[in-house]
Measured scan of single mutants.
Amino acid sequence: RKEMTAACTPRRRIINLTSVLSLQEEINEQGHEVLREMLHNHSFVGCVNPQWALAQHQTKLYLLNTTKLSEELFYQILIYDFANFGVLRLSEPAPLFDLAMLALDSPESGWTEEDGPKEGLAEYIVEFLKKKAEMLADYFSLEIDEEGNLIGLPLLIDNYVPPLEGLPIFILRLATEVNWDEEKECFESLSKECAMFYSIRKQYISEESTLSGQQSEVPGSIPNSWKWTVEHIVYKALRSHILPPKHFTEDGNILQLANLPDLYKVFERC
């Protein structure tokens, strides 16, 4: 597991931080080997919608929660590849102030007048994250320049770009939802926020969305749709870069829909 690298990086740093090793061990302890084997050997059937997909393993048909699986995938990559990410360069710098204002204007932020003026909160978020810029760049390849612009994001899987519609809320939550006081809790909560931002979430995906850094293989055609990215990038990574937690067998994120021999018997009677 320590050699797990989802995106190509030129050289690998050895990380011996106790906090990170502890988080890696927790993933191992909570892992479910049968689910790992199923995901490793599954045959992708198709997307139901951005949140759900169908896959077959041996004779069984499964309904998989793409949102939760991708979130767990990105969390584990962030923990196992800690401080070893490439950088996704933004085509132009994104001012943190503008991103924070967009987030505060969104109902998702939960902002009320009692929280104070949005401009003041946005300025605080910019200054707060600028103070964390060195650590964010060093460990997470999340790059913020001296003017308070976001200029780079971590490359977690080759050819995958997170849904940038979720970027404003991500920046807001970096400042408000991460435990910045304790090292282990900081790395864990920061990785979880980043994983949620990178995950496939239906509120940020339309039929026209593209999450891939590449064009489709047909010359002159439109960019790959999110469905292509889910199948050929995300579920491909799920084959080798995730140890599913045991609770996925109990919380409805992986559901067995049918045993195909039983279905064949039904059709034979028709």
Rank of each mutant, 00 (worst) to 15 (best):
L155R: 15
S22Y: 11
P219L: 09
F82Y: 03
L150P: 02
M196I: 12
L17T: 04
Y62P: 01
V48P: 11
R89S: 15
L102R: 15
I171V: 15
L211Y: 13
I222N: 14
E33V: 08
D145G: 05
T249N: 10
P163Y: 09
I77F: 02
A122V: 10
P107A: 10
T229F: 04
K2W: 14
L96Y: 00
H32P: 01
F128D: 06
E268G: 07
E217F: 09
V178A: 04
E185F: 08
Y62C: 04
L21A: 05
I151P: 01
I169W: 08
S19K: 04
L211H: 10
E177P: 00
R12C: 14
V34S: 07
D158P: 12
L211T: 08
W111H: 12
S43D: 09
N159Y: 05
L96R: 00
N16T: 14
D251A: 07
E188N: 10
E3P: 09
G252Y: 04
Y264F: 12
A7E: 11
H40W: 06
L63P: 01
L54R: 01
Y198W: 04
V45K: 07
F82A: 03
Y139C: 05
P162Q: 00
D105F: 06
N84E: 04
T9R: 11
Q214N: 08
A55L: 09
T249L: 11
P219N: 11
R239I: 01
I171G: 00
P245S: 05
P163E: 12
K192Q: 14
E193I: 07
E185P: 10
L174N: 01
L21Y: 06
H40P: 01
I151Y: 13
L17Q: 05
L69I: 06
L150R: 00
E182P: 05
Y160N: 02
E92V: 10
C8S: 10
T112M: 12
P10S: 06
Q215M: 08
E183P: 04
S109F: 11
I233N: 06
E3I: 11
N179K: 12
H42C: 13
N159P: 03
G213Y: 15
H241S: 09
N224T: 15
V230N: 01
R269K: 08
H247A: 13
C8Q: 12
E147Y: 13
K118E: 04
F187T: 03
I205Y: 08
L61D: 03
K118M: 08
R89Q: 15
A175T: 14
G116D: 13
P162L: 01
Y235R: 00
S199W: 00
T176R: 14
I125T: 08
R1N: 14
C47Q: 03
V178W: 01
Q76R: 02
D115P: 06
L99V: 11
V34G: 10
C47V: 14
I233K: 08
A55Q: 02
K130Q: 14
R269P: 08
E123P: 04
V178I: 10
M38C: 07
P245H: 03
D251E: 12
F85S: 04
A122M: 02
L142W: 02
I77A: 04
P245C: 03
T210Y: 12
S206G: 12
Q76F: 00
L167Y: 02
N49D: 15
E185L: 10
R239G: 04
S225T: 12
E26V: 06
I233E: 05
I242L: 12
P261G: 14
A53D: 02
V161W: 11
N84S: 05
P117C: 09
T59K: 11
N253Y: 15
P261M: 06
G31K: 06
Q51L: 02
L96F: 00
R201K: 08
R173L: 02
C186I: 03
F82N: 03
S206V: 09
P107N: 12
N65G: 01
L17A: 05
Y75K: 09
L17Y: 10
V178S: 02
L54D: 00
V230W: 00
L102C: 13
N28W: 13
H232D: 03
P223N: 14
S43W: 04
N224W: 09
D251I: 04
N159D: 14
P10C: 08
K2P: 09
M38N: 01
K246I: 09
N159V: 04
S141N: 09
L35E: 03
I79P: 00
Q256I: 06
E188L: 10
R89A: 15
S221L: 14
H40G: 10
G213E: 15
E71K: 06
K60G: 08
E37I: 06
L255K: 10
R269G: 10
E108I: 11
R173W: 01
T229P: 03
A7D: 07
R12I: 15
W111K: 07
I151E: 09
E71P: 02
N259S: 09
A7W: 05
S216E: 15
A175K: 06
E188D: 14
T67D: 00
P10W: 07
Q24F: 03
L172S: 06
K265N: 15
V20Q: 00
N41P: 02
A83L: 03
P117I: 09
C186W: 03
E250W: 06
P93S: 07
I169H: 15
P95A: 15
T18A: 08
I14A: 11
G213I: 14
H57S: 13
M4L: 08
N253T: 11
S106L: 11
M135H: 03
G86F: 08
L260K: 12
L172P: 00
L63A: 05
G46P: 00
R173M: 02
L167D: 01
Y124H: 09
T18P: 07
Q56F: 06
H40S: 13
Y124F: 09
E217Y: 10
I171K: 01
Y75S: 02
P154S: 02
Y198I: 00
A100E: 01
K227C: 04
G152V: 03
T59D: 14
G213K: 11
K60V: 15
M196P: 03
S189P: 00
L153K: 01
L153S: 01
L69R: 00
E177Q: 06
P219Y: 09
N253Q: 15
E37K: 11
E250S: 11
L190D: 01
G31R: 12
P10Y: 05
V48I: 14
E71F: 06
Q256V: 09
A175I: 15
L104N: 00
H32R: 06
R269T: 11
K68R: 14
A53T: 04
P223I: 12
P50W: 05
I205V: 15
D262E: 11
E119Y: 09
E188R: 11
I14D: 11
G148T: 05
S106C: 11
E25P: 00
G152W: 02
I151S: 11
W111I: 07
A237I: 03
S221K: 13
F248W: 13
L156E: 01
S221D: 15
Q24S: 05
I27G: 01
Q215S: 13
D251L: 04
S225H: 13
W226V: 02
Y124T: 10
L102W: 10
E37H: 13
G252I: 04
I27D: 00
H40N: 11
S91L: 12
L167M: 11
Q215H: 12
P95I: 05
P163H: 07
V87T: 14
I233L: 09
E146R: 08
S43P: 03
E3L: 11
